[in-house]
Nucleic acid binder design. Structure first.
Lengths: 227, 227
DNA sequence: GTCTATATGAAGATAGAC
DNA sequence: GTCTATCTTCATATAGAC
């Protein structure tokens, strides 16, 4: 009894070249799969949510599996787009890292981000290619961005990675940022983190990283920057 | 066609007071649920794997849901036991943290650990209590242990947390340790990480933490300790 | 392409004998 | 408590008219 896209705001990407009904089906499938996962979702739910008949669904997607793959691939692509759009003008390293972290958490902790993670992880044994796609579309893309960022900082003398590669350092940073808040949200459904909590966690992660690898170690600053 | 407990070595805990058949059912259910998740698992699979009839299953557990809850709670309890058993004699901070990290990763990256995570996370919307139980049984327990460790180190002058609470610092550390290898294993099913990779990652995480909060900052040592 | 109606199989759960 | 056999519901997918 929910209208389309009530729960998960539409990405409206990668829908070029699809007929009107096909798009309707895909979006309905997105809501249903992200809400219930693959196995618990039924084609009936999708058909009903889309407001079409069963045969319309099967006219565009041969099987439930194919529809699922289409949904997740589109979602991963949208995820990548969102992450890529994050602005990071090369300014002060601490501020840049903070901005990147907060923007990343906004995506990861969004309802769609959490559901996508849930579904992809749980279906990874059955859809290993989707899982790899997800890894490349999310963590990998951000890691590359942060690595660029860090390489610049090393060049400008703002950071000293102590023998660590830019890539390894970037991974350490984004994992430090993402891990705890994401785990908390995943294991406490319905209890979203407050903005204050997110800012505090981010600030602690950035501080830790700067203490370890920043060149100007002024240990005092732990006031979160509002972005 | 797999015999019981082929895939996931039994915890053999919390089975006191259960009849022989009840135990057989519970263990079969464990294998099936950890392998397929809740929705894709069927009571037929469980019944077959246990080598009993359907009514035997329902004689001990009223519904599929109840059986699932029993399985996951037992698994969480076993998880806690394993984590609690980790030795950490208060020695040098770096060595203690390395040992804790490696032992934790052994549990988290084990087949049972990864499957438990998958299942709990994916079913969290439907079984929120189980998800919270899992959080408390795993990350929370280790965080407490690490926090104790850090408090000692602060007292002995080995560490300076720069205003961070022991709890927050502990969380940062274990998340830094767990996050990337776990995510890689979850998204690349069947491709286990090599011991060398695990040691390298651990070593990088410990080094980062020690650079930020260790009192004796000798940046050179990045040789992983074999434990 | 889209609909209504239906085939076909499998799921969770129970009945009734022992 | 345990089994065999079965009930009921609902899932995926298709047939055939328009």
């Amino acid at each position: 009894m929910e209208s389309i896209n009530t729960i998960y705001p539409a990405p409206s990407n990668n829908e070029e070249g699809l007929s009107l009904k096909a798009r309707t089906v895909l979006r309905a499938a997105r809501n249903v799969f992200l809400t219930h996962g693959f196995s618990a979702a039924t084609t009936d739910m999708i058909q009903r949510e889309a407001g079409v008949s069963k045969s319309t669904v099967y006219a565009h997607y041969a099987t439930k599996e194919a529809l699922f793959v289409a949904v997740i691939e589109a979602e991963c692509a949208a995820f990548t787009d969102t992450v890529r759009r994050i602005e990071f003008r090369p300014g002060k390293l601490r501020e840049t890292l903070t901005a990147l972290a907060l923007a990343y958490l906004r995506v990861v902790l969004s309802p769609a981000g959490l559901s996508l993670f849930r579904v992809v992880i749980s279906e990874a044994p059955r859809f290993p290619n989707l899982a790899r796609t997800f890894y490349l579309a999310g963590p990998q893309v951000l890691a590359d961005m942060v690595a660029d960022c860090l390489d610049s900082a090393v060049t400008s003398g703002e950071a000293d990675l102590s023998g660590l590669g830019g890539d390894a350092a970037a991974r350490l940073f984004i994992n430090m940022v993402r891990s705890e808040p994401q785990l908390r949200c995943l294991t406490h459904p319905g209890a979203a983190l407050s903005t204050a909590q997110i800012h505090q966690w981010t600030s602690e992660a950035v501080m830790t990283f700067m203490l370890a690898y920043g060149r100007d170690n002024s240990k005092a600053t732990d006031a979160p920057s509002r972005s």
